Amino acid sequence: MRPIDQQTILITGATDGLGRALAARLAAEGATVLVHGRDDQRGKATLQEIGSRASWYRADLSSVAETRALAEAVRTDHPRLDVLVNNAGMAGPPSREESTDGHELTFQVNYLSGYLLTRLLLPTLTAPARIVNVSSLAQQPIDFDDVMLTRGYAPMRAYSQSKLAQILFTVDLAEELAGTGVTANALHPASLMPTKMVPTPVSTLEEGLEATYRLVTDPALDDVSGRYFDGLEEARADAQAYDPDARARLRDLSERLTAP
Rank of each mutant, 00 (worst) to 15 (best):
D218S: 11
G37P: 07
G226K: 14
R80N: 05
S254P: 08
R80S: 13
L70A: 12
A28N: 13
D77M: 10
A28S: 15
A31Q: 03
T8L: 03
D16V: 00
S136D: 05
S162I: 03
L47D: 09
A158L: 06
Q41H: 13
G152T: 10
N110G: 06
R53A: 13
S135W: 02
G92I: 04
G51R: 07
L10Y: 01
K44C: 04
R68W: 08
Q6V: 01
T200L: 11
P219A: 09
A127K: 11
D222I: 00
V33L: 09
D238M: 05
A69E: 15
P219R: 01
A235W: 08
Q48D: 15
L117Q: 04
F107Y: 13
L253R: 10
D245V: 14
D230L: 01
P244V: 12
G89Y: 13
G30I: 11
A220Y: 02
L187A: 07
G226N: 11
Y159G: 07
L117F: 05
M193E: 03
D145W: 01
R25S: 09
R96L: 15
T8Q: 03
D101N: 13
T32F: 00
E234P: 02
E210T: 15
S113E: 02
Y111Q: 06
S95V: 15
T15R: 05
T15A: 04
P194A: 02
H103V: 14
Y213M: 08
L81F: 01
A45S: 13
L105M: 14
I4D: 03
S191T: 13
L253F: 13
Q41R: 15
P79F: 05
Q7N: 08
R25H: 08
R119P: 00
G92D: 09
A24F: 01
P94N: 08
V74F: 07
V64M: 14
Q6S: 12
T12F: 03
R130S: 04
I4V: 15
S162T: 04
L209D: 01
H103D: 11
V134E: 02
D238G: 03
T150V: 12
H103W: 12
F229M: 05
G51L: 11
Y111K: 06
S160Q: 09
V182R: 03
L70P: 00
L187V: 06
A45F: 00
N110M: 10
V216F: 12
S62W: 00
L116N: 04
G102W: 05
A220F: 00
T12I: 00
L232Y: 00
Y159M: 11
T12Y: 06
E66M: 12
P3M: 04
Y153D: 12
L257C: 04
R119G: 04
S95F: 03
S254N: 10
V171H: 11
L177C: 11
S225R: 03
T118Q: 05
V74M: 10
L205I: 09
A154D: 15
D218K: 10
R236W: 02
H36A: 07
L81M: 08
I11C: 02
S63R: 13
R251T: 07
D101L: 03
L149D: 04
L18E: 02
L18N: 04
L47K: 01
G152D: 15
A248V: 08
T106Q: 08
S99T: 15
D243N: 14
T15I: 01
A45H: 07
N185Y: 06
R227C: 13
L18C: 05
